[in-house]
Amino acid sequence: MRWQRRHVLSTEDWSRDEIELVLEQATAMLEVLARPIRRTPALRGRTVVLFFAEASTRTRMSFELAAKSLSADTSIITASGSSVEKGETLYDTVRTLQALGAEIIVLRHSASGAPYFVAERVSASVINAGDGWHAHPTQGLLDALTLRGALGDLDGKRVAIVGDILHSRVARSDVHTLVPLGARVVLCGPPTLVPSAWRGGSVPDGVAYEPDVDRALADADAVIALRLQRERQEAGLLPSLREYRSTWGITEERAARLRPGVPILHPGPMNEGVEIDASVAHGPRSLVERQVTNGVAVRMALLYLLATAGAGTEQAGDAAASPASPAEVPA
């Protein structure tokens, strides 16, 4: 299996082999991160631009750390508000990034599909760091790496994703990463926060909708709780955060009823006391911190694969784009 892609926009059209390749590479990167000096020269002299057009602290820091651990030159651009309000369009901005020599553009944007728009118009590689409600492929991959670590092979495993599915790029990318690895995904949340088509039974392969949280959790092998944005209540999509917690929250009582060893994930940042109780968020089942570490490794793996894929095509048979063992990643 060789890495072929120029962009990471969504894992929706990825094969299982491609996902496995990234997870293997990420595992190698975890060992780099465990070293006393967490830095390799793999991307020395390469330019990675982090273009965060939507506010983000965690994902931005994770990408920045990943790029720096590979010795890449990084620039960070943040912008807020819609392009139209700013008077500068997304197209203007990416043309500028291109002119400045960006080789990899990591893009976070509030509009679903924005990374496709950019990828069509630049010669750089584009990594989607989250677009609107659509996809967050590095989150899907880091959740897969985390669940692999906790459960081993995901074949036949049942993963319950609970919360605001409608507005969640995490839910979509989890589906598009875990299902190819053999998992079955159960989506659960208030009817107002699950797409109507999916509730009506037209769901992606490997996915089922379960309106009752206790049934969704009863036979789950793992649970992913999603962040509930407070604006949803203000927009009239649910009556109150209190009712949300009691009806769909991963409360201490619900966590206690899970089968032994069932892990709980959350993409962060958490609203403790709303979608997840504090005691669960920081309890023995929680893999939240593991997710953070794995996130850096997955992002290193993707940056490395994208930056070295070109070299691989120049020299046929070159192993540069195959998963590197820790020894092969220059220390």
């Binding site: 679903s112 599909g113 659509h134």
Partner: peptide, 8 residues
């Protein structure tokens, strides 16, 4: 279904 999948 398409809007659900595309997140639009």
């Amino acid at each position: 279904r398409v809007s659900a999948d595309l997140g639009l």
